[in-house]
Design a protein around this nucleic acid. Structure first.
Lengths: 149, 149
DNA sequence: TTGAATGCAAAAGATTTGCACCGTC
DNA sequence: GACGGTGCAAATCTTTTGCATTCAA
């Protein structure tokens, strides 16, 4: 039921753009719809490939990217392709705001947010060990620059 | 001043474990201490390497990993090495709790946290476009399993 | 039929590992 | 002097791209 709804929605999204609902796309969508999957491209590739049907790794990546672009699927894309480091000594925990235009990183702390996170975890019996919050967008300068002609 | 403090602290951390404060380690620590850097391994490698001094890419990665282990530096390590996707259709925005033991992903929504994030961004003139919050730790099952002998 | 989509293989990007040599303690 | 650390190159892992072929519309 949920699957067929997803499928119809996806079909619309594709057709309205002159794109096609192919076998690989249907398979990936079905697998992703099942059991609220949070799957990686590799996991999908492994589980969908079989002796009977061929499927390319590249197709899975291409399809996921397409789905993300169309809003059919989402994937937590990291703001930075590379892992970023910073000194920790003498610093307390903090979170980040990353500017997507200039790459600037602002640090911020919100005790209230920390508290709420802890509460949410506790409510679910989840033993919280760490957390990472990243807000993406435009820093003050870049926002100003963009709004200018 | 802050740099020499960091350096001393790091030296302690290293020595107490029988590790050495070498040239590459000092350089990386200094560069990381400067201007509140949020730098990638590649960026550090590029900026520290020169015709006068040789420096290996591997050393930078090894050193950062070591620093992270010793608490001298931190880097937002993603809970999953691979990007994970999920269907978006019909779903509203939500955040994740990832179990580091079994890999389970719990979705949760906290309007209060969302609100606070928006407020923090606004306060800094940051135009928020997106955000990702991931809480890592142990899910109920794994926490229970671990506390058993 | 025809252009979009696929599978494969090769490339690219990020990080890790093996190993002989080097430098800190 | 011993042993931890380094540089280099090769290996790994994840994702992307080029291209001839296939297939949905």
């Amino acid at each position: 039921m949920a699957e067929s709804t997803d499928l119809h929605r996806a079909l619309e999204g594709l057709r309205s753009r002159g794109l096609r609902l192919t076998r690989p796309r249907r398979l990936i969508l079905e697998r992703l719809s099942a059991d609220g999957a949070h799957a990686s491209a590799e996991a999908l590739y492994e589980s969908l490939r079989s002796r009977r049907h061929r499927l390319g790794r590249a197709t899975v990546f291409r399809t996921l990217k397409l789905f993300a672009r169309l809003g059919i699927a989402t994937g937590e894309a990291p703001a930075a392709p590379r892992r970023r480091f910073e000194v920790a000594a003498g610093k307390t925990h903090h979170d980040h705001m990353t500017c997507l235009r200039c790459g600037a990183v602002l640090e911020f702390v919100s005790p209230a947010i920390e508290r709420l996170q802890r509460a949410e975890a506790r409510r679910r019996g989840f033993v919280m060990q760490g957390h990472a919050l990243e807000i993406t967008g435009l820093c003050r300068c870049c926002a100003a620059a963009r709004s200018r002609p």
